[in-house]
């Protein structure tokens, strides 16, 4: 229900930081997009190899499982930047001004608490699979062709850390809006009403068919 929303900019430090982080986020999301593309190519190779040459791609499933975290996590902060993560905005959509910023602020702080915990937990998960004294530093390997799993596990704390940075900026942004009672704060996603949002969505498809 909460799809895309708009983020305003100005020349302030906050806004510049927002754009700097956005560059990183977009790059990470693009990596994730390419991983999806690779998945497609991998399947063509696997099916082709099996049927044409009787040589299935060794460890096809292992490779997919390794690629999935890349696909699933790397765009998470990019989505949060635009307020794209799904939520019910029936109630929050009715709020205006300080009341709205307070709600957004609390909600973003709660998310930060969760994500800090998950950075810690997923880092611990990574560490259990990582052993500097072992070959390929591996203490956990995939079932079929024994790929080390730690690189894939490392992606979670990395992507989550970037999200934590984003959340810090949004806390700053919403906090500032709340304290100063701003109308249109920069660097935070602003709720569009459903119609504007739908128009935005349709705009994205413009000229594509």
């Amino acid at each position: 229900m909460a799809g895309a929303s708009s983020v305003l900019s100005d020349g302030s430090l906050l806004s510049r930081l927002d754009h700097a982080l956005l560059k990183l986020e977009r790059a990470l999301a693009l990596i994730s997009g390419f991983a999806v593309f690779a998945l497609m190519v991998l399947a063509v190779i696997s099916v082709g190899g099996r049927n044409a040459l009787n040589t299935p791609l060794p460890g096809y499933v292992d490779w997919i499982e390794q690629a999935m975290p890349l696909i699933a996590f790397m765009g998470i902060s990019f989505v949060q930047r635009d307020g794209g993560h799904i939520r019910m905005d029936i109630l929050i959509g009715q709020l205006r001004g300080r009341a709205l910023w307070l709600f957004e602020l609390i909600s973003v702080i709660l998310i930060l608490i969760l994500m800090l915990a998950l950075v810690w937990g997923s880092w611990a998960h990574f560490l259990r699979s990582f052993d500097l004294s072992a070959p390929l530093w591996s203490r956990d390997s995939s079932i079929d062709i024994g790929l080390p799993i730690w690189p894939a596990k490392l992606l979670a704390p990395v992507a989550f850390s970037v999200l934590c940075l984003r959340l810090l900026l949004q806390i700053w942004g919403f906090g500032r809006a709340f304290v100063l009672g701003l109308e249109n704060p920069v660097a935070v996603p602003l709720i569009q009403d459903s119609a504007a949002q739908a128009a935005h969505e349709a705009e994205q498809l413009e000229g594509r068919d």
Binding site: V36, L39, E65, M68, A72, A117, L118, G121, H125, A152
Partner: peptide, 22 residues
């Protein structure tokens, strides 16, 4: 925290879930 921290990687690295992005 450690149990919760396992879940994202553990659940996401699944062959069947790769259908969603494709």
């Amino acid at each position: 925290v450690k149990i919760a921290g396992q879940v994202p990687h553990s659940k996401v690295s699944s062959n069947a879930l790769s259908l969603i992005p494709t």
